[in-house]
């Protein structure tokens, strides 16, 4: 039996399943990160000596990573555009660039974590580092999740590009929306943790 509304939209909502599904998922993600941001506020306003982020953390690397994530957001959009224009090579190129940028982000993050650990700074050191590692660690897990999905669409999942192009375009759009959310969370994490 065919699952309805995978490609065609429901007449009452104007949406197909994956679009509604991703936004429901992202609404739950807002609550997940919201709870942690709320914890950050609680810890910060009740701490007598909260350190300035730039004194403890590496601002140039975080700024570099911000540019990397924003760039990966535009490349995933261009990959979606390439599917719409039926240009397979361009799709592989832009999605490949997105995957590469995601790896660059994670390598920079690993370098940052390693520098902290080598200076004896761990999540257990103080509340600031505890919430820093929790927020950036959870965000990093989301980057890894996005990477797994994009690698699948770049490789084994790309067969659908030719067999069901409309369905594939919707899948890339939905994966892109998730990826932009990961970018959006970082847009707040960067100033909150590193600059203030």
């Amino acid at each position: 039996m065919q699952i309805p509304y995978t490609v065609e939209t429901r007449p009452d909502t104007g949406l197909h399943n994956s679009k509604l599904g991703i936004w429901l998922f992202l609404a739950s993600e807002v609550m997940l990160f919201g709870a942690l941001f709320s914890s950050y506020i609680l810890l910060r306003i009740n701490s007598p000596d909260w350190p300035a982020g730039h004194e403890v953390l590496n601002v140039p690397i975080a700024a570099f990573n911000t540019v990397v994530l924003i760039s990966s957001s535009i490349t995933v959009l261009l990959a979606w555009g390439a599917v719409k224009f039926n240009e397979f090579k361009k799709f592989r190129l832009y999605l490949g660039l997105t995957i590469l940028l995601a790896f660059v982000f994670m390598i920079a993050k690993a370098y940052e974590y390693n520098a902290k650990f080598s200076h004896g700074l761990y999540p257990s050191t103080d509340n600031f580092l505890g919430i820093y590692f929790t927020l950036t660690g959870l965000h990093g897990l989301h980057v890894v999740g996005g990477l797994v999905v994009m690698i699948y669409f770049w490789g084994p999942g790309s067969g659908m590009f030719h067999s069901e192009p409309k369905h594939f375009a919707d899948r890339i759009e939905v994966a892109g929306i998730y990826w932009h959310f990961v970018d959006l969370v970082w847009i707040f994490l960067f100033p909150v943790l590193y600059l203030l």
Binding site: T13, G14, L15, K19, E173, I177
Partner: peptide
């Protein structure tokens, strides 16, 4: 990027 400028009412 997330196309919210032209999204459906339910979203």
């Amino acid at each position: 990027f997330m196309h919210l400028i032209s999204e459906k009412k339910l979203i």
